[in-house]
Design a protein around this nucleic acid. Structure first.
Lengths: 106, 106
DNA sequence: ACTATTAGTTCGGTAATCCGAACAAAATTT
DNA sequence: AAATTTTGTTCGGATTACCGAACTAATAGT
C-alpha cells in the first residue's frame, strides 16, 4: 500500500537528483529520518521538519500533506513566495525576462 | 516574549468564541495540549495536529506558521498570473535561473 | 454569599519522533 | 572482479509531544 506523503517526497527528491543525506542536510533532518518519511507507514512528523523539507523541495506544505492537489500550483506558489522577497530591481528584471519568454510562444 | 503561533491560535479561537475544550474536540486534540500550544514556548507540534487546528480555525497552515503569502502588490499579482500560464518547462527554466542568480546577490 | 457550572492550568506517564551509528546494497574506480 | 566510495536501510535509545485526570480560577444562577 502506497504512502502519499512518502511517495511525494521521494518523487521530488529524486527528480532533483538529491540523496537522502543531501536532503537531510539541506532540511535539517537526519538521512535516516528522511528515509522513514519516505518508506515507513505514515508517521506524524513535526510541522517544523516538514516545512523545511517542503522548502528544500520547493513545494508548499499543503501539497506534501495532500491538501493541495497538483505539484504545479505548489511550485508556482513557492516560486512566488521567493519572488516577493526580492528587491524591486530584481523583480523588474525577472518580470521582463518572463515577458520576453512569453513573446515567443504565442 | 510573545509566541507567534500561540498568539495566533488564541486570537482565532477566542474570536470564534471557542473554549480550549471545544477547539480540542473539533480538532482532535486534548484541551491541555491546545493550552500548551497557546501558552508554552513553541513546541514542535505534528503537522497532523496543526493541520486540523488550522482547518477548524479556518485558516491555512502557512498562516499559522508565519509563511503567509501576502498579495498586496498589484504588479506582483499580475506577474504571478502571467507566470502561471507558462508551460512547466519554461517555469522550470526560469526558476533555476532565478535560483542561480540569487546565489550571488544573496 | 453559596453553589453549580464552565473555563483554564498543572503535571505525571506513555507512546512516538528523531537521531547517530552500525550495517547492507549498489555503484564506481582501479 | 576486488576494492573503494556512495547510497540506502535497520535499530537502540534520548528526547518530547500529547493525553487524562486532578486541580484552580472565573462566571453565572439562586
Amino acid at each position: 500500500m502506497p504512502n502519499g506523503l512518502g511517495d511525494k517526497i521521494k518523487q521530488l527528491r529524486t527528480s532533483k537528483g538529491l540523496t537522502l543525506e543531501e536532503l537531510g542536510n539541506l532540511s535539517g533532518s537526519s538521512k535516516s529520518y528522511i528515509w522513514e518519511l519516505e518508506n515507513r507507514t505514515p508517521p506524524r512528523p513535526s510541522a517544523e521538519k516538514l516545512t523545511k523539507v517542503a522548502n528544500t523541495l520547493e513545494v508548499t506544505l499543503d501539497y506534501l500533506l495532500g491538501n493541495e492537489v497538483n505539484v504545479e500550483d505548489a511550485q508556482d506558489k513557492m516560486f512566488y513566495r521567493e519572488f516577493q522577497k526580492l528587491d524591486p530591481k530584481a523583480k523588474e528584471k525577472i518580470r521582463s525576462m518572463v515577458n520576453w519568454w512569453k513573446e515567443d510562444n504565442d
